[in-house]
């Protein structure tokens, strides 16, 4: 097993003269969960496609599981499982057939595949659904089937593109729990998401992307401490620009996004005191998160 699962060095990719990924470098250590975090269009999907050898970079060097990509991408893919963003299951096939067909794409014999199906179904909590058609499953179940399918070749590296987008909270938590159990088994995960909570919960390290460029990289908590490092009070219900003037004295920094004012302060009590006189305001005091980091770095909210 190589200590570095993925490395990208100075990778650039342009489509029709528009640079989508700009001199981008990162590496993922074996056994860690690395997140690519950014809004839609930041270049996350293009990066994962390049890692898989689906798209050749214009410039730069990519190595995945010790194999140069795209030249020997097929070799690398033997040890990779992919959960794509969009549902590409065979809808008319049963759960079992979906797994069977996919195992064959890895040159597994029917017997080998039949042998691993029960444990995959158990892992994906789909034990009773083996003979249900994919189209009959709920969104959460389909995503878990895609996760089971990605594990059919017992990969050491998993690449997950927006794994919980469009799922309800319950289904989302189940996926996160399953992914943590995979990390516990020593798998390496590369995750793309525009979902802050997901990144904070799962990623050992992450990098924040904007318009194809890396704008920050590190451990989630370290990034938050380094970029924000104090409490946040969200104020809504008033004119944010008038409020801004009121609070200038007691806040390190103030950002306005839409109708909400984000007040970063290590003395939140003073902020509350300042605003006590004003009625109709809604205040929410909370610890800082990655959303704040993104807002700080780009001046924009990540939510699309």
């Amino acid at each position: 097993m190589t200590a570095t699962a993925i490395s990208l060095v100075d990778v650039t990719k342009a489509y029709n003269g528009r640079t989508v990924v700009d001199r981008f470098s990162f590496f993922v250590k074996a056994g860690e969960c690395f997140g690519l975090l950014g809004p839609n269009g930041a270049g996350k999907s293009t990066i994962t496609r390049m890692v898989l050898g689906m798209t050749p970079p214009d410039v730069g060097k990519i190595t995945v599981l010790g194999a140069p990509v795209p030249a020997q991408a097929r070799l690398a893919r033997a040890g990779i499982g992919v959960v794509p963003q969009f549902d590409d299951l065979d809808q008319e096939f049963t759960v079992r057939e979906n797994l069977l067909v996919f195992g064959r794409y890895f040159n597994m014999s029917t017997r080998q595949i039949e042998a691993v199906i029960p444990s995959l179904l158990e892992f994906a909590r789909l034990e009773g659904k083996a003979d249900a058609r994919a189209a009959e499953l709920s969104g959460g179940m389909r995503r878990r089937l895609m996760l089971a399918r990605a594990l059919i070749n017992d990969p050491q590296l998993l690449i997950l593109d927006e794994p919980t987008t469009g799922l309800d909270p319950h289904a989302r938590h189940l996926i996160w729990e399953r992914l943590r159990s995979l990390l516990g088994r020593g798998k390496t995960i590369l995750l793309t998401t525009h979902f802050m909570e997901e990144a904070e919960r799962l990623c050992d390290r992450l990098c924040v992307l904007e318009e194809g460029r890396k704008i920050a990289e590190g451990r989630p908590q370290a990034l938050i401490d380094e970029q924000i490092g104090c409490q946040v009070i969200e104020v809504s219900g008033g004119n944010p620009y008038e409020l801004q003037a009121l609070m200038n004295g007691c806040a390190q920094r103030i950002e306005v996004s839409g109708e909400t004012l984000f007040c970063y302060s290590s003395t939140p009590d003073q902020v509350r005191l300042q605003l006590r006189e004003l009625s109709d305001l809604r205040l929410l005091q909370r610890p800082p998160n990655l959303e704040d980091v993104f807002l700080r770095l780009t001046g924009r909210e990540m939510k699309d």
Binding site: R77, D87, Q91, F102, Y105, F106
Partner: peptide, 14 residues
Amino acid sequence: DQRSWQAILYTQLT
């Protein structure tokens, strides 16, 4: 439309 090929391209098939 069904993205079946895309799924296969992530495997050992070319």
